[in-house]
Design a protein around this nucleic acid. Structure first.
Length: 297
DNA sequence: TTAGTCAAACTGCAAC
DNA sequence: GTTGCAGTTTGACTAA
């Protein structure tokens, strides 16, 4: 595989064999430190001699910087490697994508190319491989991104739905605010909240008695803050802040077990005890907050 | 014919 | 000096 380093020299005979191009050659073709003598007799699987343009053996002293190899009369012409040459180079690249000097000379000799050409081919091949890798990585990252985006979009939609529900319930709360506390009765209590105990109802009543002191415009302004779950309203702003704590179910959930000092006096904190995560009567923090809205007259 | 693509080859730079 | 790499040029090839 590309990227793994081997000593290509020792693998070269194997490579030749695997391509059916190494039948009758014997001897340590590419043993390290033992340059081949040049007496190659490469034959294909049918016993045909692999002379150029595929594998014309080139003597080492024949390999020079001049460009007069196969096309002596076209020194400036750029010529493509033959299919077999490319195949050989590809196999060699798979075994080892870097090129030691000795291996370069030996490949050049086998393929009848100049060492410089082999070096250039490997260089370009590494560049192509890198480009392919980048494309692969991109595709992989893109699919991860798409999956995450789908997740995110679904969560955003869920958040919007919950916001809308909170807004709707808040509006109903404001609408019904004119009713007296004495006539307080749980209205349209969902089936799953029927078992809400009387203590919770009492606490809500009591808290409601405090929040009734708030003017309607204060509550309205608070509603915008409610919709922004990121907005912390833990400062001492009177009882309205407590209402906001209740309305913002995520914040309400934190009240019981995090920083009580942000809320106010101990009694206020106590009022929120029923919002603690230990209260499993409704299953989730949102449902606990929901109870408050349903119970509110 | 031409524009686009691919691959061979070159150039300049940095690291060793 | 050699090698690898990024960027570029150049030539072969192909489809419209």
């Amino acid at each position: 595989m590309v990227g793994k380093r081997h000593h290509g020299s020792s693998n070269m005979a194997v490579l030749l064999q695997s391509q059916g191009m190494y039948k009758e050659f014997s001897g340590p073709l590419f043993a390290p430190g033992t340059p081949s003598s040049g007496s190659l007799d490469l034959k294909d699987g049918h016993g045909n001699s692999l002379e150029r343009p595929l594998f014309r053996p080139v003597e080492l002293d024949e390999i020079g910087d001049d460009d007069s190899g196969e096309y002596p009369h076209q020194p400036d012409k750029k010529r493509r490697l033959t299919t077999c040459q490319v195949q050989f180079l590809e196999k060699s690249f798979e075994l080892e994508n870097k090129l030691e000097p000795e291996r370069k000379l030996q490949i050049a000799k086998v393929l009848g190319l100049k060492p410089r050409q082999i070096a250039v081919w490997f260089q370009n091949r590494r560049a192509r491989w890198k480009t392919k890798q980048i494309e692969k990585d991109y595709e992989s990252l893109k699919s991860s991104y798409d999956a995450l985006k789908m997740d995110h979009d679904s969560l955003v939609k869920e958040k919007e739905d919950l916001k809308a529900e909170v807004l709707s319930l808040t509006k109903r709360l404001l609408k019904e605010e004119n009713g007296s506390l004495e006539s307080f009765e749980p209205k349209r209590l969902p089936d799953n909240l029927q078992n809400l105990d009387s203590t919770l109802a009492f606490e809500v009543k009591k808290l409601h008695g405090q929040t009734m002191l708030c003017k309607q415009e204060d509550i309205s302004s608070a509603n915008s803050a409610i919709l922004d779950s990121e907005s912390p309203h833990h400062t001492h702003e009177g009882d309205c802040s407590m209402l906001m704590e209740l309305n913002s179910y995520s914040n309400a959930f934190r009240l019981d077990h995090s920083d009580h000092s942000q809320i106010g006096d101990v009694d206020d904190v106590k009022h929120c005890n029923f919002l603690s995560p230990e209260d499993t009567s409704c299953g989730s923090e949102f449902h606990v907050a929901e109870q408050v809205f349903w119970l509110w007259p």
